[in-house]
Design a binder for these strands. Sequence first.
DNA 1: TCTATCCTGAACCGATTGGTTCAAGATAGG
DNA 2: CCTATCTTGAACCAATCGGTTCAGGATAGA
Lengths: 199, 199
Amino acid sequence: MAGKKQFDLDTVLDAAMIQFWRAGYAETSVDDLSRATGLNRSSIYSSLGDKDALFLRCLERYATRYGGKYDAALSSAADRPLAAVRAFFAVTLDRIADPELPDGCLVAQSAMAIPVLSSAVAARAQEAVGFQRTRLRAALKAGGLRDETAEAFAMHSAAVNQSLAVMSRTGASAEQLRAVVEVTLDALARTLNLGNRGE
Amino acid sequence: MAGKKQFDLDTVLDAAMIQFWRAGYAETSVDDLSRATGLNRSSIYSSLGDKDALFLRCLERYATRYGGKYDAALSSAADRPLAAVRAFFAVTLDRIADPELPDGCLVAQSAMAIPVLSSAVAARAQEAVGFQRTRLRAALKAGGLRDETAEAFAMHSAAVNQSLAVMSRTGASAEQLRAVVEVTLDALARTLNLGNRGE
DNA sequence: TCTATCCTGAACCGATTGGTTCAAGATAGG
DNA sequence: CCTATCTTGAACCAATCGGTTCAGGATAGA
């Protein structure tokens, strides 16, 4: 070894991720990334690869970080499915409420841009959206919902979760976003009660 | 007058609108617009203004065209609120199902890009999202919902409507999108029944 | 036919895009 | 101290960006 790394990789990746998150792939130039990370252009290429590779890495980082939180929120679904889904949405609402982070959602942002993304990036974005549906479906099944009902609610909840990203960018307040979620939670609560009564 | 217009304005505007709709503002160059419309670069500038003005015009066109359809769908809300809201979502689902048109939604697309749009365009996009909530709220109130309930359902329905744009871009099937909507419609149906029983 | 009007293609502008190269400087291990 | 390794800034590249200009062709009314 020799000269040590003169920047913190985690800090740099976070800065790049936030830049992509805020402005999107197309509206982020390598110069923007250089400014955001404080790294020189040539350092970005030598240390992090080209724009596509870096974006993919940021998408991965985002999916891993928040994917973990979503999984944790849903972990209690078998015992208390309603509270679990509420916690699921709280992950998104808390993230939006955090003034340190941009509004919106990097995955939703990328999903909207799929027609103009490279196939590798598009596939990864599509996969990330699919994961949300998968973890919701598993949680809802564990919570006692019939297969088709779980599937429908998983799809619906994943969609509503993405919609929060859109609405937050239009300046929707925290209360308004909560209202969006509450309608879904009410519907789930009634469906769960129906199932309990039926057995 | 002299030399007649050598292109059909409606056709050209539709082509430009679809280009923006598919690729978004940032990923659409004036060259792309030239190719999509068949018009020369200089013709675009002299006849339609610069990129910003043209985008604004396309956004206006989009909002007017589909705004009218949404209004028509909701017009029967006083008599049959559930059917009206179902028709509201059908406007979006039909549009997504149309193979002639891009997936997604120009308004949702623009809303996601608000942080990097010019203030005039951003304001217009924000306004367009607000209109959806307003027309839904008015329809739901006319349908007999209490003010707060109408407000919550309007917000929720507008959000779900936007989410269809995101989900359609990830390759969601028509049945999956219908499932997303059906959960919302079920919730509305039960809320409407509750109100009827209460009086 | 003449002429005013409109549209066309092509060239041009400076700025910025993603991407590459390289000499010079900083650093830590030997 | 010396050297191998890493980072840095700056220059450079071709391509494209949004935007402008202009000569010439096409057209319709007079």
